[in-house]
């Protein structure tokens, strides 16, 4: 049993191990932003509604605001900061820029982490499928048509991540 005071926690984020001290109540989102200075994941609603905090745990997209950081010990966490390879943006990041798929940008990291996962999941064959499987990521600027266009571009450019496996 640990807590409620701070306790040592080992977190593996984007392939790097971090030894930090956290209270068990700290969410994965707060741990990333406030303890590891990885502020790409955003806090929109903090109640599992908006998707701005979408990250991957063991390659599955999840909501960092409803995940306790301490429960992630032994799991691999991936955030938007780990998506580019060196100086090369991930194709979905490039497509979002090319398609102007954001306005204020607050939801964008969550949108991109969700979109990359969606293309791997293989449920992006049609615009309807994309809309359905991106519905957990809200965009109050309503950039949805451009977000779908960016996802289509990457889907159609790379047959290994096409809509149907």
């Amino acid at each position: 049993m640990i807590g409620p005071a701070r306790a040592p926690v080992s977190m593996r984020v984007n392939g790097e191990i971090h030894e930090i001290e956290l209270e068990p109540r700290v969410s994965l989102l707060d741990a990333l932003r406030d303890h590891l200075s990885l502020t790409g994941s955003k806090k929109g609603c903090d109640q599992g509604t908006c998707g701005a905090c979408t990250v991957w745990v063991d390659d599955r997209r999840v909501l960092a605001c409803l995940t306790l950081a301490v429960a992630c010990e032994g799991h691999e966490i991936s955030t938007i900061e780990g998506l580019a390879t060196g100086g090369d943006l991930h194709p979905v990041q490039s497509a979002f820029i090319e398609r102007d798929a954001f306005q204020c940008g607050y939801c964008t990291s969550g949108q991109i982490m969700s979109a990359v996962a969606l293309l791997k999941e293989g449920n992006a064959a049609t615009d309807e499928e994309i809309a359905e499987h991106m519905s957990g990521n809200l965009c109050r600027c309503a950039a949805y048509p451009h977000i779908r266009a960016a996802i289509r571009d990457v889907r159609d450019a790379d047959t290994t991540t096409s809509g149907r496996a």
């Binding site: 998707g51 997209r61 999840v62 909501l63 996962a117 999941e121 957990g136």
Partner: peptide, 9 residues
Amino acid sequence: GASEQLRNM
């Protein structure tokens, strides 16, 4: 029900 992220969790 829910979203893909929530269904994964």
